[in-house]
Design a protein around this nucleic acid. Sequence first.
RNA 1: GCCGAAGUGGCGGAAUUGGUAGACGCGCAUGAUUCAGGAUCAUGUGCCGGUAACGGCGUGGAGGUUCAAAUCCUCUCUUCGGCACCA
Length: 827
Amino acid sequence: MRNYDFKAIEEKWQRVWEENRAFKVERDPARKKYYLLEMFPYPSGRIHMGHVRNYAIGDALARFKRMQGYNVLHPLGWDAFGMPAENAAIKNRSHPATWTFENIHAMRKQIKRLGFSYDWDREIATCRPEYYRWNQWCFLRFMEKGLVYRKNATVNWCEACQTVLANEQVVDDRCWRCDGEVLQKEQEGWFLKITAYADRLLDGLTTLAEGWPEQVLTMQRNWIGKSLGAEVDFKVDGQACEALRVFTTRPDTLYGATFMVLAPEHPMTVKLSRGTPQEADVDRFLSQVARQDKKTRTSETTEKEGVFTGAHAINPLTGKDIPVWTANFVLMDYGTGAIMSVPAHDQRDHDFAQKYHLPIVQVIEPPPGQTLEPGRAFAGDGTMIDSGPFTGLIGEAGRKRIIEHLEVKKIGQAAINYRLRDWGVSRQRYWGTPIPVVHCPACGIVPVPDEELPIQLPLDAHLGDKGRSPLVELPDFLNTPCPSCAGPGRRETDTLDTFVCSSWYFDRFTSPRNEEKLFARSDVDYWMPVDQYIGGIEHAILHLLYSRFFHQVFRDLDLIDSPEPFAHLLTQGMVVKDGAKMSKSKGNVVDPDEIINAYGADTARLFILFAAPPVKDLEWSDHGVEGCSRFLKRVWRIFNEFLDDIRAARPPEPGEPLARELAELRRRTHITIKRVTDDIQTRMQFNTAIAAIMELINQLYTLRDGWSELKNQSGAAGAVLEALETTITLLCPFAPHIAAEMAELLGHKEGASWPAYDEALLQADELLIVIQVNGKVRQKITVNANITEQDLKARSLEDPKIAELVESKAIKKVIVVPKKLVNIVAQ
RNA sequence: GCCGAAGUGGCGGAAUUGGUAGACGCGCAUGAUUCAGGAUCAUGUGCCGGUAACGGCGUGGAGGUUCAAAUCCUCUCUUCGGCACCA
């Protein structure tokens, strides 16, 4: 018998698949499609176990669906723009493109060694002009729709590196690269108006309830942060200036508003204090707040501090004068930058009122059962008290009536606020998509015409930590005639956030080589949405929200039909070792290449699917890997031992009489088909699917001892053949190389379809019944499967051991659970 | 602080509808094979007591519902993740 030579087998089949373009797919409206996608990788240099897990899960599903007859789109590409390439290039005095393409080459090689069933003809890299020209095209369409604008915004700035950092590159207020201090800085840049789609992004989540993890839906919902409430105008006492407008979610507490607070940045803060004795205090306070960085400023634990502005406003309902303060906890970029403070019914206002001795007036009576706690605000719904004509109204009804009143009086109206902010896409970096606009002294900002796309990223830039895009120093790039007036213009030098690339790459996979359009309508409408998307939870908001946003805009541009881009989402758990995420600094990294070299790709894949269900964290175990390697050798050995005896056999006919152990094998075979099918299809639990296959193999091993006699029995070879063929087929999604090799040894061509089980064969002739006395297991008996409930009850009571146990007791009740157990209640 | 997920043998994990807790794998033990080791095959393996038959205990903890609870309810502890002054 040949040994299990995984190296030869894996190289052979990978070559076969490559040469045959085995996983190439085409749009075929006659066939049912299935689009399976894993989040595409950033070409960082080498793959890690997280990648292996991601793609092993995806490939198992892709192969499974393919075997079920679906037309499966399963592509891979590269999220190839981004800062690491630029930083590495600066460090190594090379070019980001060189670094990126070398990494892609190395990682593609590693991934191919794992034997994943990708349609490699569809491979894309977002840093190629053929791809990023469509980023630019999208940007222009967004512009036309009024979804693009420029504004000043606060950005993370690393002094040491002289560059802007993305939020995720700031770790505990320090630069991830040099550990230097990160400051907040105002900088002008481009924004996409994702807030215009807030409601649609929120509403769409309800349609995803079936296919997405609850956790991700909740995170997106919270991130969008929709608040219903009202805007209310407060007149400033004794001054003719405009009223102060506040946003509140609790208009029913308006009678309890005893002071107002403006954000320090609010334009009225300074204005109101001028000419009052508070002028100096306000100025001192504002400069103090300006020194606080954003993170500390917005932390809940930061002490609430404020000063009186010197001005008073009038509570529009009570008509009373209330002081106007300014304080650090009120933010300019949420609501109107001003609040009405109701210290009795908002904890923050309460803390602030107590600190500065401001009046606290209760206007809500807690519902029965709830009481006011001393020192705490009551923030729940309740009955309005001391609220003039509104007294007695409860919760939502009160809010509604107050809003109606405000609208009639024209001093306010219903309003909605979102926590979601517009998406800043400007990067002062080189290695990204050039933003396709020209700044013209005469015409202003002028979009580049479509015919001029792509605006190519020049390759001769001099990189360095200069804090601005190196494109500024390239006159050939920078200077360009204005597309509108042909006068001297200046190209935009900011590049696009790389999240733009990943917001629609899944659409591009449907027409990856299309040169006329970003994708062909027929392709995208056939393949989209992605039926199953798989990736890490770290993208729960960012990438998954941006992509949903792009998809909605594409719908509005009439580019695409499907309502959402990803129908089902699986967020896989981390790969950990010794309880911690694998990382270089912890020294607990396991290199996929080493595992493949030592055990082969099939073992690596099998272990990573067997060790834990996909959604949970996976604890890496070298012993566990050996166990999986041992299992594949065990499969190989038993297969080869039986091979000569079964090669010429045919699987048993339905109902064909078989010897006891052979009938048992058949039953096990069909149970295994059912379990593995359910585990993959409806439960996405590969660990139990693999365990079921292991049980079938264990069953085959029990036949080995008596095989020399058994094999001459009618149907013996057929039953074993059926069991082994089934094992091979069921193993395909997890360990495709060894499965292909064994199928070939049996004389089968590739492309087996997923087996069906015979319902009739799942039933055993005899059942093991548990007998309990007062809920405790006391006996186990084997009975005929067709036994009646009456007979089963009688058999249980007759059992000598049970009879003895209940002898001196009165039998109160006998519960029979068909095919499972009998419980005798006796006292 | 708020929200979410989880807690089961020495370890990873299983138990799909409330119905035999611990499938499968690792580890460990014993035996076979072998000069030996390794590999392989077989058997056993939750804990405590007992040679055994068997009995008791057992799914983070405390209560409860039920003939029956890892699973349902109440309270509580721990761990991990997310959000965190959003008016």
